[in-house]
Design a protein around this nucleic acid. Sequence first.
DNA 1: CCTTTTGATATGTATATACATAATCGTCAC
DNA 2: GTGACGATTATGTATATACATATCAAAAGG
Lengths: 253, 253
Amino acid sequence: MSMIATTSADSGSADGGEVLSLHQRILSDISERILSGAWAPGHRIPFEHELTAEYNCSRMTVNKALSQLAKAGLIERRRRSGSFVRRPQSQAAVLEIHDIRIEVEALGLPYRYERMARSRRRSSADDRALLELDVAGPVLALECLHFAGKRPFAHEQRLINLAAVPEAAEEAFFETAPGPWLIGRVPWSAAEHRIRAVAAEKHIAAALDIETGAPCLVIERRTWSAEHPVTHVRFTYAAENHTLVARFTPSQG
Amino acid sequence: MSMIATTSADSGSADGGEVLSLHQRILSDISERILSGAWAPGHRIPFEHELTAEYNCSRMTVNKALSQLAKAGLIERRRRSGSFVRRPQSQAAVLEIHDIRIEVEALGLPYRYERMARSRRRSSADDRALLELDVAGPVLALECLHFAGKRPFAHEQRLINLAAVPEAAEEAFFETAPGPWLIGRVPWSAAEHRIRAVAAEKHIAAALDIETGAPCLVIERRTWSAEHPVTHVRFTYAAENHTLVARFTPSQG
DNA sequence: CCTTTTGATATGTATATACATAATCGTCAC
DNA sequence: GTGACGATTATGTATATACATATCAAAAGG
């Protein structure tokens, strides 16, 4: 039990570049092996005391990592027997990134787009929160309406990170909606959707021609390109207009 | 010091019935206060050393609870400043929406299930439309509530096609929610989700303890097994409780 | 007045230790 | 054989302690 401490001489440097704490490193080492299939479902992963020896750390540290893996559902822990890789029982859910024009036309209605407001500004704290941007920089804020026939169909509030897409500063977005414009220019590597129900606030209710407080479906999307935040957009649909449909088939694992 | 008593008098007995460890209890106490609105977004929750005193335990125990709350996204921790309530955004990845228990427990709250109504009947035209069933036959209709802590979290209305799952007729569904029960019995080959916003109708608003007309997120799912309709379920979530999150990134630990 | 330094503070991580609890194994008596 | 029972084992939870680190505020210096 010399203990020297540190142990951590290097902490997973070469790989991700991130600085990981020890229990995080143990956690990611193990989940890597599980997700890669090296440790198949049913496989017994090393006991806590074995990992303690392997990483030269205390059992508490190993325990923290394994507890989190168990909570995440990757492993199952059984007293006296050990910890076992669980069969992944999640279905891959794929929600398509949708273009509103296509949605509207699928309904058989004529599509029309209208740009309401556009402003270029230095990012506020709110802007940075929405974009998950950590440094200040210029952004482009847009507000648009999408029509199905004569009726407003969706309201769009968008932020574009001009550091990532400088060309956007030259574009008025009178003719082309920002969504299709961006798709044609910026390859996105990751996106996150948030879907929720809200009561329409006054400004948006007026734009959508519905009553203030009426239920609306809000879809927010954040898009990244190679680790850089590109855009954040919030679509608000009047409730009666919109249903998201997603079809899943089980993939099992 | 001393302090015993207060909060700790009962350990969540009457409520969830579960026996909670101390850090779980701290965690659920706090998240309850956040979700109930007692501690609004931005509010600074007590420092670790204050909670240490309140619960008469070590800082590690408090730290474990707060770390989990931070990971679940309910609070934000800032060194030197303290821990602050974040805007509630309970996240359920789309891949997990089928099991409400897991969602609730991910928030650190005790889960409870309650069956409200159950009736067996010959399928009405409405029933057949919901199930996409073309011939008449017996169905089981269920109405249930799912609780997170003491508050209702989701309302469930379900139809089960008894022609596809005859064993369901024997089950009271007092203990087991129909979702988990079906998953264990019927292999499903396809599912379709519909997600939309609605205004809460009187009956459901009363069950969820919200105001009639308040915006709610509704998720409907239809499930097939080998071409046969199995079940249709409609979950209604109070808006402030629920955000669906779908993320597309290379998965990591 | 503005910048820099210093100190206080709250969280972040890790250790060694202790005891509790659940499950399994081996032994011994019947 | 087999049933009872204690020993063993791995995990579950909690404690006291230690040091690292980020950050803010006040003191010190130009």
